[in-house]
Amino acid sequence: MVIAIDPELNQLSKEECERRLETFEGRIARGDKVEPTDWMPQEYRNQLIRLIHVHANSEICGALPEGKWIPHAPSFKRKMALLAKVQDEVGHAQLLYRAAETLGASREQMIEDLISGKSKFSNVFHYPADIWTDVAIIAWLIDGAAIVNQMMMSDGSYGPYSRALKRICYEEAFHLKHGYEMVVTIAQGTKMQREMLQDSLDRWWPPIMMFHGPADKVSKHTSMLVQWGVKLKTNDEQRQQFLRQFVPKMLDLGLKIPDPNLRLDKETGDWLYTEPDWDEFKRVINGGGPVSGDRVATRKLAHEEGRWVREALSAAAANQPIPMPTMTV
């Protein structure tokens, strides 16, 4: 990944660095937003680029499992809604790549890093969407889990990322409605439909439980991100919020959650669950998931087959501004 070097940083005295860091942390403590031209510790910049890049990659790879089902959507309403939803996800990727650009990363390089397998994307998109009802579970539960994360991150300290996330959350709320309505419709459907839905949940539940990242006791990135106001809740706190919000609704719909240890601790109000398999999580996000290779290969193919278009656009822009032909109709 290309990381913008803060040229000043290396030329500053230790005292000056400490003074700036103190001012920076003071601003964060007061709830100020950090803007692209402000001084920031290199580590803050690096961590944000890493986070936003992974987030953008996840949006663009997240378009693939659902996008695959647009041609098969079984009604006008579903076809148009799913198309609109996936379009939103691609739009989010664009917004996020732009937010990362404000930190000095280049879009072209970020995409190159994605297709060369150097950068990561969310664990859930390394799994295949095999049947139509997977689309309903993804739109409801994965978008639901993502909203928990993104609402929290949207209050974070970096201005451009925070603002992009506000807009993303606004759209994600529609996705959640779309997903919930699909799940409710199918849950009230025929025996075949209910079995398909349960099958989807059984397969997606383990990856969804890993979505918010490793348990706090093993997560290596969390503490610094919390300190600098990038991340306002830990992974476990987010997971718990997701369970509190969604488990009762799932049970109401007659879905069986495939975890024999899942139960409510009445004293704390927390849901207790089987600890996800964090070895699987690590293996998956490092490219060892069931369709990790396919996802990257698809993005790579799209990027390479579109190269001539981007080259022609650059050439057209370099030669001269081409006026639009006169519109006669």
Partner: peptide, 9 residues
Amino acid sequence: EWTGFAPIL
């Protein structure tokens, strides 16, 4: 059919 696959975002 181009959703998620076009030459530029």
